[in-house]
Design a protein around this nucleic acid. Structure first.
Length: 417
RNA sequence: GUGGGUGUAGCUCAGGGGUUAGAGCACCGGAUUGUGGUUCCGGGGGCCGUGGGUUCAAUUCCCAUCACCCACC
């Protein structure tokens, strides 16, 4: 499906307020936006074959540089001709830069640790209270040191190394290397960190253009906006990364990352601060968000793609997505827990109107509950396929709503006034 | 038959002469957003095998008994 002639590009097809109905052209086919990006961290949607992922309506996948770099190593992926062939997915792929793992492995959120004093400009180590798990990550101006969760070995990531690795992995869209701050970082640290992320963005951009492509198709590079839940920092970051060029060349897309606040409302505010300052002609990706209300909220503010582990991870733990309960009343959380005892004798499908393999295939809630309780992989597979189909259906509805200028109505129909 | 060991939550086991006996898992429910095949938070649940004895007080110490396990004849 690789189309060498297709250059990366983004086009707005319709608008509804700030919302965009667009199309991203990639060497591995188009992405109709707004779109949900399913997460395949280690080069696989856990428990589901690529064909089933495709059948569930997924257009594009998200893989992790950190994980694939550690195992099996970028060279092995490159030897296959890149991630697409390696994992048997011929559609578009986006890779994370590895920056987030710095956050989640070493400088992650540990709630209840207490107040964090700003140590900036002291370089080196994240604030003590903000260190997660075992504090195995050190950040400095050049990059980060981290310890492998696989075998304990020590590794160095820099913008240049991240880009080189992502060149080898060969995703259609790759991310600049960034530092992701947590809610425990105060404004001073967050601001200084964002500025460093900007310097890393510039180095990522330079490395991306300096380094010869490993695979015979054009990859796209997204810059990452940081700034935590602080308005001034978000605006500054959006402006800086959006306008950034090296030798006249800028980013192909914008990603919004980092700490988006403690609540959904805060996140929506952060988006409202950010998207107006992003270049209109570039696609915007929102990192790590995928709950149903946020899909509408983000689309409404001009976000084009989102990735989130929740639909697939929750599926494996029994949380299947649904809009209405059996009495036709909306689920506030858009989710039912199939492991609940109430489904033990429930012979109905998850959702009568759903066309996914689990629902249309005649599999009952009781059967799925049994499989999930017994840890059978088929249960995880069916639940995952259902959730992917659900996400695809919501996104299709959002796209259609934007096309006809009725996103607000669609949003209210889903979320209430 | 003899000797030894073990009986505590659904399971595997801690514990200990003195208010309402614990853990892990399981079960029930809830959270969990750039996935370390998750993680976290709550909840229900016990004649501490049975009978007797010692003691102010026994699930705890003693005796008997039953069940199971191991070894030996």
């Amino acid at each position: 499906m690789t189309d060498v002639s297709t250059s990366f590009g983004y086009r707005v097809l319709a608008r509804d307020g700030a919302a965009r109905r667009g199309r991203i052209a990639t060497p591995h086919g188009p992405i109709e936006t707004p779109a949900f990006v399913a997460v395949a961290t280690q080069g696989a949607i856990k428990s589901v074959l690529p064909r089933a992922v495709r059948n569930a309506g997924s257009q594009v996948l998200f893989a992790n540089t950190y994980h694939l770099y550690l195992r099996p190593g970028a060279e092995i992926v490159a030897a296959h001709g890149g991630l697409h062939r390696f994992m048997g997915w011929d559609g578009p792929i986006l890779t994370d830069s590895g920056g987030f793992q710095v956050f989640s492995l070493g400088a992650g959120i540990e709630h209840g640790v207490g107040k964090v004093a700003s140590i900036f400009p002291g370089e080196g180590v994240a604030p003590a209270g903000a260190r997660g798990r075992s504090g195995l990550v050190q950040v400095d101006e050049e990059g980060v040191w981290f310890v492998s969760h696989v075998d304990g070995s020590r590794h160095r990531f820099t913008p240049e190394r991240s880009i080189r690795t992502q060149r080898r992995l060969g995703a259609d869209m790759v991310l600049a290397f960034d530092e992701c701050t947590s809610p425990l970082h105060d404004q001073a640290y967050t601001a200084a960190s964002a500025e460093r992320t900007h310097r890393w963005a510039e180095r990522s951009l330079r490395a991306f253009h300096d380094e010869a492509p490993v695979h015979p198709y054009r990859q796209a590079l997204y810059g990452v906006v940081q700034g935590g839940a602080f308005e001034a920092e978000r605006i500054a970051s959006a402006r800086t990364v959006g306008a950034m060029t090296v030798d006249g060349r800028g980013f192909d897309g914008m990603a919004i990352g980092g700490n988006l606040g403690d609540t959904r409302e805060t996140m929506h505010r952060v988006l409202a601060w950010t998207t107006p300052y992003l270049p209109d002609d570039l696609p915007r990706h929102l990192l790590g968000i995928g709950d149903v209300p946020s899909l509408f909220e983000a689309a409404e503010r001009g976000v084009d793609t989102f990735d989130c582990v929740a639909p697939t991870r929750n599926a494996r733990n029994g949380g299947v997505l649904a809009r209405f309960d059996d009495d036709g009343r909306p689920f506030p959380t858009f989710r039912r827990n199939l492991k609940n005892a109430r489904y033990a004798n429930d012979l109905r499908p998850i959702d009568r109107s759903c066309t996914c393999e689990a629902c249309a295939g005649g599999f009952s809630r009781a059967y799925l509950r049994h499989l999930l309780k017994a840890n059978e992989q088929v249960g995880q597979q069916l639940a995952t396929v259902h959730n992917l189909r659900f996400m695809a259906a919501v996104m299709r509805e959002i796209r259609t709503a934007i096309e006809i200028g009725r996103l607000q109505e669609a949003k209210e129909a889903w979320l209430g006034p």
